[in-house]
């Protein structure tokens, strides 16, 4: 088991991590030969799946007996702090390594328990002057996940998707406009297969409907269009809605603000997915899954 990374520019890593930081602190970092996946998930809560291409790292070496996949669980807060500190320094390289956790008094019973415990060690050297330099080392405790646990962590699959919509940064005023409605727990997102987008919030004594006047670019879903054409004209604009928690929406809206390109996927009554490309060279992406409110069965 071996992990050796080098980072010179933290932009991609930091923006990805800080995008998902509000969701939760404990994340899974899965190093595969091509990607670093950062996974933030919990049962019945929104999930974020981030993929950072190994191209981002000047040095990227992962070795393990499991097809060179290495999976650890950690609190991302100290990781973010360490990256920010490195950013502020005038150092030009940060090396990240996985090391065994140093145990002060290793007893026979603790050694077994600690086998999965390790540290992610981040080291960089700052040049103070021509002659002298200062080294910094951060040790972030991680838990190495066993193969069977790692294999249990799978990206959610949508059983159906009705609307795939491309959002660019022009849409942000719409998302900002709805920010002033904070009283309701839920927001309903409706998209039509021709590209209309509408957000609505219903409160006890107020109903709000916000819609984007232009048609957004949509990707036609083949299966869907064929099904529809059986009983209606293809021109008909069918609305598809999903109701999600307002606080989950807000995180999604914030994510959209950070990203370069976003595709919104509506799985009717089931989920809202935001697939975000973080930067122009498309080396990082975040997929944010928000489960829909369970509809009352009538």
């Amino acid at each position: 088991m071996k992990l050796k990374l080098c980072v010179s520019n933290t932009d991609v890593l930091l923006s990805t991590l800080s995008a998902i930081q509000p969701l939760r602190k404990l994340c899974v970092l899965r190093f595969t030969p091509v990607h670093l996946c950062i996974i933030s998930m919990a049962l019945n809560e929104p999930q974020a799946w981030c993929k950072i291409s190994q191209e981002v790292f000047p040095l990227y070496e992962v070795e393990s007996i499991r097809d060179n996949v290495l999976c650890v669980e950690t609190n991302i807060d100290p990781l973010i702090n360490a990256l920010r500190n490195f950013d502020k320094s005038n150092s030009d390289g940060l090396s990240i390594r996985l090391q065994r956790r140093p145990v002060a008094n290793e007893g026979p019973e603790s050694s077994k328990k600690n086998r999965s415990m390790a540290v992610l060690s981040l080291i960089y050297t700052e040049h103070v002057s021509m002659a002298s330099s200062r080294s910094y080392s951060f040790k972030i405790p991680v838990k190495v996940l066993k193969a069977e646990i790692d294999q249990g962590i799978v990206e959610p699959q949508l059983t159906h998707a009705e609307v795939l919509m491309k959002l660019d940064r022009d849409i942000l005023p719409l998302f900002r406009r709805i920010e002033r409605y904070k009283r309701s727990g839920y927001i309903c997102v409706t998209g039509t297969n021709r590209g209309r987008l509408e957000l609505s919030i219903e409160e006890d004594s107020r109903k709000v409907q916000l819609s984007w006047k232009e048609f957004l670019q949509v990707q036609q879903l083949e299966g869907e269009t064929q099904q529809q054409s059986q009983f209606s004209t293809q021109d008909q604009d069918m609305p598809h809605s999903v109701q999600i928690k307002l606080k989950d929406w807000r995180l999604g809206a914030k994510l959209t603000e950070l990203c370069y390109k976003v595709v919104m996927i509506i799985s009717e009554n089931h989920a809202l997915v935001l697939h975000c490309i973080l930067n122009e060279d498309e080396t990082a992406e975040v997929t944010y899954y928000i489960g829909g409110k369970i509809q009352d069965q009538e």
């Binding site: 006890d204 107020r206 709000v208 409907q209 916000l210 819609s211 006047k213």
Partner: peptide, 19 residues
Amino acid sequence: HPFAVIFEDNAILERVEFQ
């Protein structure tokens, strides 16, 4: 009936109904 207010600019149409 509710009291309705519509805010409209070049991009966004917002309709709010107050009980």
